[in-house]
């Protein structure tokens, strides 16, 4: 087939048609997102829930105030540490388990079916259940198990050193299945020829993995990174249900701080600044990743 022919068929039958087709979806979403613009407007006001009749424009005051506070930079750092660790762990764990699961053996279907269960429990509930499992004394089942190995008791969510790690474990538990599923899918659609060629050349397994499998899986990696990175930058449910940002502020991510500002302290203006910055972060990362993705599709 020639490119010319392709282009002819790619051209929509009616110039407006593609817009028309996207319109309903776009309208539905924009309808919901009008409030978003209102939210951005609030970042420039002193909007406090308890004085909602009296919203005053205060320019950049909220931004200046927040940027000069250490809480903000700390929250930003924690958000990044959390999101990056989660994505890296889920990618590597996801790929390893997917490789193990992509070869047929008795029971593989069952395992693949069981795989997805952690994702099905609402994250906020999983987090509550994990909190019971991670109780700092031997009342918690994990510490109880560890006590047989002579370890602990570890305070898990109650210690500033281990709280973030505990949250990462919970997040990995919930969302690894997402990465595993997509990797299994990717592994199954790998083309066969390059592998045969490599086999003929007598390449080692590790070499094949590094030079062949990984590059071929790159789009999967980008896809997982895209969705997991955005969602973990916005992490809320599992921290809300467990530490609420504590101990001290060891797990106070941007979303959690904004929750405190809005729902507990009523400072909508300040809260929206945190959220707006969070949105910008997600936006920048997603833009970068989708570019990467498009480049890969062009190949």
């Amino acid at each position: 087939m020639t490119n010319q022919l392709n282009n002819k068929f790619d051209r929509p039958p009616q110039r407006g048609l593609p817009y028309l087709l996207s319109l309903p979806a776009l309208l539905a979403l924009i309808g919901i997102l009008y409030p978003f613009i209102l939210g951005v407007y609030y970042t420039f006001t002193n909007y406090n829930l308890t004085t909602s009749d009296n919203i005053k424009w205060i320019g950049l005051k909220n931004y200046i105030e927040i940027f000069s506070e250490t809480e903000f930079w700390k929250a930003l750092g924690i958000t990044f540490i959390f999101a990056l660790s989660v994505v890296i762990i889920e990618l590597s764990l996801g790929l390893s388990v997917a490789i193990l699961l992509s070869h047929p053996f008795p029971g593989v279907q069952l395992l693949r079916a069981l795989l997805i269960i952690p994702m099905m429990i609402p994250p906020i509930v999983s987090a509550l259940m994990w909190k019971v499992i991670l109780l700092p004394t031997n009342q918690g089942v994990l510490n109880y198990f560890l006590s047989f190995l002579g370890i602990g008791p570890i305070a898990w969510l109650g210690d500033s050193g281990t709280a973030l790690i505990s949250l990462i474990i919970i997040d990995v538990w919930i969302y690894s299945p997402f990465a595993i599923l997509i990797f299994i899918a990717g592994l199954q659609s790998l083309p066969k020829e390059p592998y045969e060629a490599a086999r003929v050349d007598g390449a080692s397994g590790w070499f094949v993995f590094r030079k062949l499998t990984l590059p071929l899986l790159a789009p999967n990696i980008v896809l997982i990174t895209l969705f997991r990175l955005i969602d973990s930058l916005k992490v809320f449910d599992i921290i809300y249900a467990t530490t609420k940002g504590g101990p001290a502020s060891a797990t106070a991510t941007l979303h959690i701080v904004s929750y405190f500002e809005a729902f507990r302290w009523n400072n909508i203006g300040r809260s929206m600044v945190y959220l707006f910055i969070l949105w910008i972060l997600c936006f920048v990362f997603a833009k970068f990743l989708t570019k990467l993705w498009n480049r890969m599709l062009m190949r």
């Binding site: 978003f36 809260s271 989708t290």
Partner: peptide, 15 residues
């Protein structure tokens, strides 16, 4: 379309 997914829930919820 994708960017709608970025909007943090708390940011839209009150308005």
């Amino acid at each position: 379309f994708l960017s709608f997914r970025f909007a943090p829930e708390l940011m839209v919820i009150l308005p």
